[in-house]
Design a protein around this nucleic acid. Structure first.
Lengths: 195, 195
DNA sequence: CGTCTATTTGAATGTACTCAAAAGCGGTGG
DNA sequence: CCACCGCTTTTGAGTACATTCAAATAGACG
């Protein structure tokens, strides 16, 4: 059934009884968003913690030069949120937009509070999630400091297996911090070097 | 007295009674490390959460090309730790080295556990600290994606006010992800553009 | 089918690096 | 206290990585 993905995601961190699982599931609401629709508009309050069950979203902002920069992708089995906006109930700096037709399971802020109160061990899940996220961000900073665009592309493929075949080159370029033209030239170079 | 800095650091997040403050202080031990000495060696277990009261340290790693990359600085009023090593008791990927004669207050892993058990509201401090850190890392990723070295230098000055006058240019370059030669040339350019 | 966006390609440019050499500076030992 | 050593900083020339702009082509979608 459609909840197995999120349950196994949680189970990688904590063990839940059947009742707890059922309670958790009862707190979720599901939503379908079409490609190009927004899960979160820039400047809105992020009211949900969203788990992607199908499709893919991008978490982005627009820099001073007008370029769209992609902070992360959210394909299946990923959580997406603007944590600053969600926890501190302030306007989001990021926006979250579907890059494919997408299905999400969402936990509202009030159900989030309910959940952590009712099942304290979710705190462990949350801590591990933020800790893992923190470490991943550190790694990405290191990659941006040390690696060339070509090397960062391989890190991207490693982090999001198969995603490079699903989304446009322009989006990958925005994630890597390079121009789509340059990524096109890199790909051409790779193609010709194997002929 | 020498503990006022760490107390005001904590007080920015949670209110402690006098007894709680005294208990917290009793769990700390202080340490002096000379310039160039290590607070944490690469590959060792990070056994302390360290608060800098004087001086400055750098949190670094060495990349595949042999360059030292600086993930963050720890001047006065900053906490430094390899969180992955500390919490999961595994060999650290980073090393932490003094760039000035430095004084730290340290909380061992066992006292850390004691503290959080005895004064649960420290959990709030911890959560806010990681949340703030997470947001700061996101911002640094964005800066690396969107900004030139010159612009990143201004962000660095903003994040660590006055530090650029205390540490070597080489260290700043390692933090910015550029070569010291290039930073030297940027500085020359700035100097001449105001003459 | 037409429109809009993404991709490719090329030429010119800018940003940042490498390598090498010289100059500056700080610490240490005699 | 000075001379020397090692490390940092400066400077220059040549190069590599990545961008900009523009135009042509290809794809996607209504």
């Amino acid at each position: 059934m459609s909840n197995s993905l999120i349950i196994s995601n949680i189970n990688r961190h904590i063990d839940l009884t059947q009742d707890e699982t059922a309670f958790f599931i009862s707190l979720l609401d599901s939503k379908t968003i079409a490609k190009r629709e927004y899960l979160l508009n820039r400047g809105a309050i992020c009211r949900y913690d969203s788990f992607i069950t199908k499709g893919c979203v991008k978490v982005c902002y627009t820099d001073e030069k007008g370029n769209e920069c992609i902070l992360k992708f959210g394909p299946e089995d990923w959580w997406v949120i603007d944590i600053d906006s969600f926890l501190n109930i302030k306007p989001s700096f990021y926006y979250i937009q579907a890059v494919e037709d997408t299905e999400v399971l969402r936990l509202s802020r009030s159900n989030y509070d309910l959940l952590y109160k009712a099942i304290p061990k979710f705190q462990k899940f949350s801590n591990e999630r933020w800790q893992t996220g923190f470490i991943a961000l550190q790694q990405r900073i290191m990659q941006n400091l040390s690696l060339t665009a070509e090397e960062r592309y391989y890190q991207f493929k490693n982090k999001y297996p198969g995603l490079e075949q699903r989304i446009s080159q322009k989006l990958i370029a925005s994630y890597l911090g390079i121009t789509p033209e340059f990524l096109s030239k890199l790909r051409k170079k790779w193609a010709t070097s194997f002929s």
